[in-house]
Lab assay of single mutants.
Amino acid sequence: MTEYKLVVVGAGGVGKSALTIQLIQNHFVDEYDPTIEDSYRKQVVIDGETCLLDILDTAGQEEYSAMRDQYMRTGEGFLCVFAINNTKSFEDIHHYREQIKRVKDSEDVPMVLVGNKCDLPSRTVDTKQAQDLARSYGIPFIETSAKTRQGVDDAFYTLVREIRKHKEKMSKDGKKKKKKSKTKCVIM
């Protein structure tokens, strides 16, 4: 069974824990209790493949930012979460993405942009803004509501699919490099 290491990042209060708990335990946590770091595991079937999701729910508070490099190193894919009623959390996505790329030393890291709290009427981040940002990053965008469960499975499952595509691409690139290195030079 394939294991996928997913990391949920975003500013404090955007609903990272609520999304994760909704996926794992099928219930909505409405009281806000700032996370330092929590880890969850769940076995699911995605596109006919049974897999184990190892999900790291991270601290959004700035005082825990020193811990970010460590979990970013171990993560295979990242859910970059903002709240649709919090423009600052949307603007912060850029910083999370840049930090992930720096730590992973790669421009090509599996990510999904997630606009959470889409059940709320007080939207300050337009869907088109988020779609445009995701398009500019070359990553999928999904709106979710941890409260109603809308888009929750889709967000995590899409990230797994992005990781699969990335692994497939990397193995193809690896095979191309191996083929090239088999060419021999004969000096007579």
Rank of each mutant, 00 (worst) to 15 (best):
D173G: 13
G13T: 06
I93L: 11
D38N: 00
K169N: 11
G48D: 07
P121A: 09
V114R: 00
S136F: 09
F28P: 01
V7S: 12
P121N: 12
F28R: 01
V109L: 06
L23N: 12
K165P: 02
K5V: 02
Q150E: 07
D57F: 00
D173L: 13
M170N: 14
K42G: 03
A11D: 13
D108P: 08
K16R: 00
A83H: 14
I24S: 09
G75I: 11
P121I: 08
T58A: 03
E49Q: 11
K180C: 15
V81E: 12
D47Q: 09
D57C: 00
T74R: 04
E63A: 07
D132V: 05
N116M: 15
I21H: 04
G138V: 04
F82Q: 04
K101P: 01
C185V: 13
K175L: 07
V160N: 07
I46L: 08
E37K: 01
Q99M: 15
M170D: 13
D108I: 04
Q22H: 05
G115P: 05
E76T: 12
Q150M: 02
K88F: 15
I142P: 02
K128T: 05
K176S: 12
S17T: 03
S122Y: 07
V8I: 13
R164D: 12
I84E: 15
G10K: 01
T2S: 10
D30S: 12
A11E: 14
F141P: 01
E168F: 05
G151P: 15
M188I: 05
P34C: 02
R73Q: 10
R41L: 03
V45W: 05
V186K: 04
K178H: 12
Q43E: 12
V114P: 00
K175M: 12
S39A: 04
Q131P: 09
A66N: 14
R164Y: 05
R123S: 11
E162Y: 07
I55F: 03
R73M: 11
T183I: 06
T127S: 07
Q129P: 13
R164L: 08
E76R: 03
S136Y: 12
D47R: 11
V29G: 03
T158R: 05
F141R: 03
D154K: 06
D30K: 11
S39I: 10
E63N: 07
